[in-house]
Design a protein around this nucleic acid. Structure first.
Lengths: 131, 131
DNA sequence: AATCAATTGCAAATGATTTGCATTATGTCC
DNA sequence: GGACATAATGCAAATCATTTGCAATTGATT
């Protein structure tokens, strides 16, 4: 469809240095990342406030989704075409595993809501840590 | 099984005034409530810090569960025997509707995790607000 | 290269939640 | 029922994530 950069430019906003840096970190990340992690990886090249502002912009543009894992802060990941999934977090070792099922369509039918967003995350102990 | 009060006393902790007040508010609530709401309802009879401490105790005792609805703060509700459900929040009017489906068992089988907790909440626009 | 609004960096503000500590109140024992 | 020991409270200050105001900067356009 459109690349992330195209989506940014089509939205009529500038493709600035901080925005490029945040996008690069998101692309390189293999897991949803926190604001703090993003900021750490781009050090002095972008302010923490700009990371927050950029992530919120990306959310509005449909580039990024929030992944709440009950850690006291949010994580974010790029939205990939045709790849909708959720996570389970091992509270012992921090491992994140993908879950490829989702109830969103079913819930939309049941409730007659127009669903804007949803979270569906699990916390537990993985087989390796559970002894 | 056990009443909430029995669970508290069996845990070897005191059943204090703030704890009774918080429990009463939770029992009276028809929806998951925020810490701020709980505190507002018991006014000068318990400190905000005690409400936080009490809710965390109740979580540990399995009396209360956290309901994250993406509002920037948490809500909490009493855990009722045999009544496990989730919510969809209308972002227009604030209406909360119950959802009586859950993927926890299926996810446990798929991932071989021992699931400790999970959240599965939806945000959208209800039929009434969607025009 | 000049222009100008959008965006940034910085520092201060906000809001939820947590914590230290002196004081108070609960459950227990007599 | 009263005294005791300790858990729990209230209060105020600290912490942590996130937001915001504003002057200075920069990207896109000409």
């Amino acid at each position: 469809m459109f690349t992330y950069i195209e989506k940014i430019k089509n939205a009529g906003v500038k493709f600035t240095r901080p925005r490029k840096l945040v996008l690069d970190v998101l692309k390189a990340a293999k897991q949803p990342v926190s604001i703090k992690e993003i900021h750490k990886r781009i050090r002095k090249n972008a302010d923490l406030a700009s990371v927050y502002r950029t992530i919120h912009l990306f959310e509005e543009l449909g580039i990024v989704r929030e992944v709440p894992l009950g850690e006291g802060y949010q994580r974010y990941e790029l939205i990939e075409e045709g790849r909708h999934h959720h996570y389970i977090l091992c509270v012992e070792c921090g491992k994140l595993e993908d879950i490829d099922v989702c109830l969103a369509d079913q819930v939309a039918k049941m409730t007659h809501f127009r669903i804007l967003s949803h979270s569906m995350e699990f916390q537990g102990v993985c087989r390796g840590c559970d002894g």
